[in-house]
Design a protein around this nucleic acid. Structure first.
Lengths: 187, 187
DNA sequence: GGGCACATGTAAGCTGTTACATGATTAA
DNA sequence: TTAATCATGTAACAGCTTACATGTGCCC
């Protein structure tokens, strides 16, 4: 029960920005919410059907054309506000990198260092992505009333990425202290 | 396939630190790995049985007493290293706070501010928890070869919490600019 | 006319959570 | 002796992913 609501929230949220096809909802969730949210493909169409049955969205142009555009109804907007106001259900944490580092003695310092290097590189990649997103939102600034809130989530991503980078750098240094370089005389 | 391995990894990892009962494995995962990992109760006993069948753990004292202690075998240690060396499977992101903020226009700036205040308070709570954990690890320093790696994960938690705090403070300020105080003449 | 992106859906199967059932041991 | 904690397990269900099935419209 508790979990299907989450899909409902994401789908209604997407439609609250603009009407679109189910296919476009999926793309929006993947490409726009992707940095902090995910829904799997197979959930979206059933969720849309359920929302239609409940009168929270209308399906326009359904006849014979195949593709149809979903539009949020006033009741759907009420439902969305209700869902957004509900208590946040914290997702159980599952950080594979930290799991590996916690048992890092099994892997040895060198492997752990390379895990950290990868994490740092990933975070740097994300940081440049966020920069691009920021520019894009700024470009649309005039046309959307949502940009202020969108920037908040971009900023969260940036802070998170920077914290990963500084943590990784510190941790690599700590591990290096622990593994004195093999004293090779060359040079 | 891919997912059951994760439970296997956590269980073998716990037993690599010291032999313990299934119940204790569960507590260790909840209390020690809890900040970055979770396994549900109902997965742990089946995982232990499977590991026993495969010879990766031995069950000692199984006879009639009810409780038995699980001990990792050499083959289990090999399996653990294999699992830890496998590519990290990134968990699909699901951040309920960011989802709410992204559609924050529906909630209004005041509600969003209080969401951010809560997030900040949570992060501060975590920060003091991490401090306590750090002290505890330092106290055990002599007795465990793992403490260096454990501190890495604590540090990750601290960096993360601090990044949430600074992000939340910035964001609250941004929202305040947006909602000029109601000009009430009183005072 | 062949390939690609758009578009909608379903079904099988796996993962994970929760609640239940049971019993031993220990402390008040 | 009664409650809490330790201990082991199972079964039902909810949620999610993946692969499949199908068709349209457009561009080269």
């Amino acid at each position: 029960m508790a979990r299907t609501r989450q899909t409902e929230t994401a789908v209604l949220g997407a439609l609250s920005v603009m009407p679109m096809t189910g296919y476009a909802v999926r793309e929006a969730i993947r490409d726009v919410l992707g940095h902090f949210w995910s829904e799997s493909f197979g959930q979206i169409y059933p969720a849309l059907s359920a929302l239609e049955r409940q009168g929270h969205v209308d399906r326009e142009g359904k006849e014979r054309t195949g593709s149809s555009v979903f539009v949020i109804t006033p009741s759907g907007e009420g439902r969305l506000r209700e869902l957004l106001a509900a208590p946040i259900q914290p997702a159980p944490p599952r950080n594979g990198l930290l799991l590996r580092l916690f048992f890092g003695r099994q892997l040895g310092p060198e492997v752990c260092q390379s895990l950290l290097e990868n994490a740092k590189a990933d975070a740097e990649r994300r940081l440049t992505e966020f920069k691009a997103i920021r520019n894009q939102i700024a470009a649309d600034e005039a046309t959307t009333a949502d940009h202020l809130y969108w920037l908040l989530t971009v900023s969260a991503g940036e802070h998170g990425a920077r914290s990963v980078i500084s943590w990784a750098e510190e941790s690599i240094a700590t591990l290096l202290e622990q593994t004195p370089l093999p004293v090779d005389a060359h040079e």
